[in-house]
Design a protein around this nucleic acid. Structure first.
Lengths: 135, 135
DNA sequence: TTTTTATATAATAATGATTATTGGAAAACT
DNA sequence: AGTTTTCCAATAATCATTATTATATAAAAA
């Protein structure tokens, strides 16, 4: 895997420690983070970083297609490093988000439906996760 | 179709003019409303109603499964009267939300995946709607 | 390496959606 | 009617996100 700094540069993002910190966090821990969580984590390395900076870095990574925002939670956004198209599952007990890798049916893969042209499709699943089942 | 007041009663919701107003709006105009839009509309009939009341009524309708909340928009919730399971399309040009009625593939109809049990599936489509295409 | 220049950051403040509170009004029950 | 319960309006409070701005810093130029 390419070094994080190289990826940023090749996307014409000026490399700063804060940006590197946020991007590496998303790439290395392969889970979903709220902006607050990113802030808390990155703060360990850069105590002076501010929440607003975290938001602006996340926005930048989104624009450059290095991160994506998931809105399966009703109250706040989650962020993850960009991966192949996949879908999400939200556990209503523990609140954790899981990636769902499922091959979608042809109907959902169409790039057009009812006259609308489709750029992107996101599948959101809700239920109880395997850890919480039987508790 | 049953009268709105009857539906509320049979769901053990005490009928008040405000509740009736909100519920009838969602049932009769079959589109998606933000809380602000519901407020503006219902205000025509009940000038004294407050936004907080609108939120609390929407919450109540959701609990009783008479309305549902859609979060295809990143910044605010949309509400609609409960219908059969369907999916949503958000136009990135005009911001309008359209219902998408598509038969799901068997994979998505499973009530279980990767060990998680699934209550609900929501498909979100993003793109350019038929009205905005070719503009 | 130093200087320059543009951009990024920190530290607020501001905004906008949603939720909590509270006192008083209306409905249901006795 | 009197009592109790629930509802509602009118804030105020909260929480996520965005805007602002003065200072700091990375990359480019000298």
């Amino acid at each position: 895997m390419k070094k994080a700094a190289t990826v940023l540069k090749s996307n014409s993002i000026r490399v700063t420690p804060q940006r590197l910190g946020v991007y590496k966090l998303l790439r290395e821990e392969k889970r979903h983070f709220s902006a607050e969580e990113v802030y808390a984590k990155v703060k360990n390395h850069f105590p002076a970083i501010s929440l607003a900076t975290v938001y602006s870095i996340l926005e930048l990574l989104k624009e450059k297609d290095l991160a994506s925002e998931v809105r399966i939670n009703l109250d706040k956004a989650s962020f993850e490093a960009k991966k192949n198209e996949h879908h999400h599952f939200l556990c209503k007990k523990c609140g954790e988000i899981f990636d769902i890798h499922i091959e979608l049916c042809p109907t959902l893969k169409r790039r057009e439906t009812q006259g609308h042209s489709i750029d992107k499709f996101q599948g959101y699943f809700y239920g109880v996760c395997k850890n919480c089942r039987g508790k």
